[in-house]
Design a protein around this nucleic acid. Structure first.
Lengths: 216, 216
DNA sequence: ACTTTAACCGACCGGCCAGTCTGTAAAAAT
DNA sequence: ATTTTTACAGACTGGCCGGTCGGTTAAAGT
């Protein structure tokens, strides 16, 4: 009990500062010693708890990245209100944390995808898992939106999901260096513009039966 | 004359395979010796022509990346035809090379932005230059489109530019691992959808004088 | 009281890698 | 013909970094 508590506490500390440094400086540019120095721990402690640097990172993915992705980008859009509003608010909030230079786990993900792609297949497997979950979740959100009459039922749900993921990951890359707040604002405006274009078309629709109003 | 030719030829070869390897394996994961081995050249040759690995990379940016960006993402949209068509075709082609795993320099850029961001300010300066050029070019293309009546004159040109850059860089990240061809297709569909939403609105426009037809 | 084990320490090893330095062959200059 | 310069070759250095290994301490088990 107590021993596992101690164990967990130390591992948790290592993972938290590990993720922080990996995010800031990159996985390959962060040495295990960098992390240990931050915590005043030794190599022995590290390799007692983890098999390797790679194993360590995979545990970070499973324990921290996955959970945060859920709470920031997945759960917020699972309601039954207007799907497009949910997604808008969700992105708005995620990008706001980005403006304040906090850890934005959607972007951490895209950062790591870029870093490991073609270089470390084992880690990519885990990152791709997260991407798949995110995508599946967006797809079903769009389908729900179509069913509830918030989205035109002719739009391609998969397409919308891919487009949303793309633009989100892209804007995060662009926001890192130059005028994050202004870029966030412009991005969100255009996103709303795009969302308007996939709402059910009222009067000039080719199939009037597609729409049955905005139920609340 | 002859000597400078020889010099240029060797430097060119180094830069070309340098970019190739940096792109495939990342800057920090590619040693100078890796590049030299590929060319059967020695350390002496390398440090005779370049001051450092960093200097080498900056020259690659200036000589190869910038030029290719121009020819692939900038010049193709400088015409006076329908701006949205030009951009569509341009993205279509750039993504097609990506599907075939060739060097797509727009993505190389986003890749490097991710790799160097927060780690190497000196290199980031050069990469940000390219981003600014790309952005400025997209902005003026949109403004031209508004002037020529292909784009609604109420849209925010900067916003469109940021949105386009974001989504392009994002889709390239997503295309790297999973189903690139399918994702490209879906992305392009949604891009067209978005473009439709920023075309001049005909009948239900608040200001009918905004449109004067599709001049050719 | 003793043994065991969990948790951690820190010196050390081997490999890699950016950059240096000495040398050298051929071309160019004089 | 001699000197100088260009364009390399390749051995070497110093530092970093992932991982190992033989301790050590304190708590838990018996």
């Amino acid at each position: 009990m107590d021993k596992t508590l101690k164990r967990m506490a130390t591992m948790q500390r290592m993972q938290v500062t590990g993720l922080e440094l990996f995010y800031k400086k990159g996985y390959y540019n962060t040495s295990v010693d960098d992390i240990l120095k931050e915590l005043s721990l030794s190599k022995g402690a590290f390799y007692y708890h983890f098999d390797s640097k790679e194993d360590f990172f995979i545990q970070i993915i499973e324990n921290l990245l996955v959970r945060k992705m859920y709470s920031m980008l997945i759960e917020p859009i699972e309601g039954h209100e207007n799907t497009l509003d949910l997604i808008t608010n969700c992105f708005e909030e995620a990008l706001e944390t980005a403006v304040h230079n906090e850890l934005d786990f959607g972007f951490v993900l895209s950062n790591f995808v870029n870093e490991f792609n073609g270089k470390n297949e084992k880690i990519m497997v885990h990152l791709n898992d997260i991407l798949r979950i995110w995508e599946a979740n967006l797809v079903s959100a769009v389908q729900r939106g179509k069913f509830n009459g918030f989205i035109d039922r002719h739009v391609d749900s998969e397409g919308v999901a891919v487009f949303l993921m793309s633009s989100y990951m892209g804007i995060r890359t662009l926001m890192v260096e130059t005028a994050p707040s202004a870029r966030k604002y412009r991005f969100m405006s255009q996103l709303r513009q795009y969302f308007k274009s996939i709402e059910p078309k009222g009067e000039n629709s080719l199939n009037p039966n597609a729409v049955f109003g905005n139920v609340n």
